[in-house]
């Protein structure tokens, strides 16, 4: 019994990462970033608006939170659809009540198929991020490049044709990519991406068509992750978001600007028994004067305006 010799060979065992997409550095060593108005903590409230097809293909894997039952899985299809019909309107009310400038990551197919919803989202003055075509059109290693190129272009072009404000950001369904995805994004004029959740600040990212800014949209405190995957209570989610907020704010006071990226899903947090938890979080966050509550694009601009900060 043995493995091929190359299992103990390490061609990338050298300085930096094992790829060349971005420079290696530790957050604590980077120059301090300051946010507009000398605020300490940038807070990005991201709402993911998603369409989970009933005839899920699951290629190359079943998207988390998608269909799990034999066809037709009415249970998961309608529970996810609930977010776009009901849950989002509770979220929008909460945003209005707490004066939130929202960011919406939306599947382009959903934007195309629900003009009423899109109008309501646009009326908030929030920013739109392209969240791919739908939750069953994944970007993945081994995907045909032309097929993915068409998918990215269709998704970006469709959303751009529907919304009045510039579409500058990208969030892949399931935060999954192929080796080509970042290059295809910049080829389509995308300026920032939210998929790589390896930092608490934006950072510079290389592609074949120029620089991309990575905006890590942390998974660890998402409502669907804490409540849906970890099966923690709503109260525990509130506690965790508050603890994260307090910690990052304190770190920002000592080390320079930090970013809290909070991703929510109306099909999860928009339920009647959960919406008060979102309100509690927003009340806590907006009750602090040291925060800069902004859209993702505004944070990218403030970050990139400080040269040399993109490492």
């Amino acid at each position: 019994m043995s493995l091929d010799k190359d299992y103990l060979e390490y061609p990338k065992r050298g300085y930096g990462h094992d790829h060349d997409r971005y420079e290696w550095s530790m957050l604590a060593d980077r120059p301090a970033v300051s946010w507009p108005g000398d605020k300490q903590l940038a807070v990005w409230i991201n709402t993911s608006l998603q369409f989970y097809p009933l005839n899920q293909q699951g290629k190359p894997f079943k998207v988390p939170n998608g269909m799990t039952m034999p066809y037709p899985d009415l249970r998961h299809f309608t529970l996810r659809d609930y977010g776009n019909r009901v849950g989002i309107y509770r979220c929008l009310k909460a945003f209005e009540r707490y004066g939130i400038r929202p960011t919406f990551a939306i599947n382009s197919q959903l934007a195309k198929d629900t003009p009423y919803l899109l109008d309501q989202l646009q009326a908030t003055g929030g920013e739109f991020i392209c969240h791919g075509w739908n939750m069953d059109h994944l970007h993945y290693g081994g995907q045909d490049r032309d097929e993915e190129a068409e998918l990215v272009q269709r998704s970006v072009d469709t959303l751009r044709s529907l919304v009045d404000s510039p579409v500058r950001g990208w969030l892949s369904p399931a935060k999954n990519e192929s080796w080509n995805t970042p290059d295809l994004l910049t080829e389509n004029g995308i300026e920032y991406c939210c998929d790589w959740v390896n930092d608490d600040m934006p950072y510079g990212f290389r592609t074949d068509h120029g620089p991309l800014t990575m905006m890590p949209l942390t998974t660890e405190i998402e409502d669907q992750f804490v409540i849906g995957q970890n099966l923690h209570s709503e109260d525990a989610w509130v506690e965790q978001v508050k603890d994260a907020f307090d910690f990052l704010l304190n770190e920002a006071r000592n080390q320079g600007g930090r970013m809290l990226a909070l991703n929510i899903h109306p099909w999860m947090i928009g339920q009647p028994h959960r919406i008060a938890s979102l309100e509690a979080v927003l009340e806590y966050i907006t009750g602090h004067s040291e925060i800069w509550q902004a859209t993702a694009g505004d944070i990218v601009d403030a970050f990139n305006a400080q040269s040399g900060k993109g490492n």
Partner: peptide, 20 residues
């Protein structure tokens, strides 16, 4: 990794450990 490489969900959070 559960996904074909590049499996970002697992890789990137572990990279977070080193960077942050």
């Amino acid at each position: 990794w559960p996904q074909p490489s590049p499996a970002l969900p697992g890789y990137t959070i572990r990279d977070y450990g080193n960077r942050v």
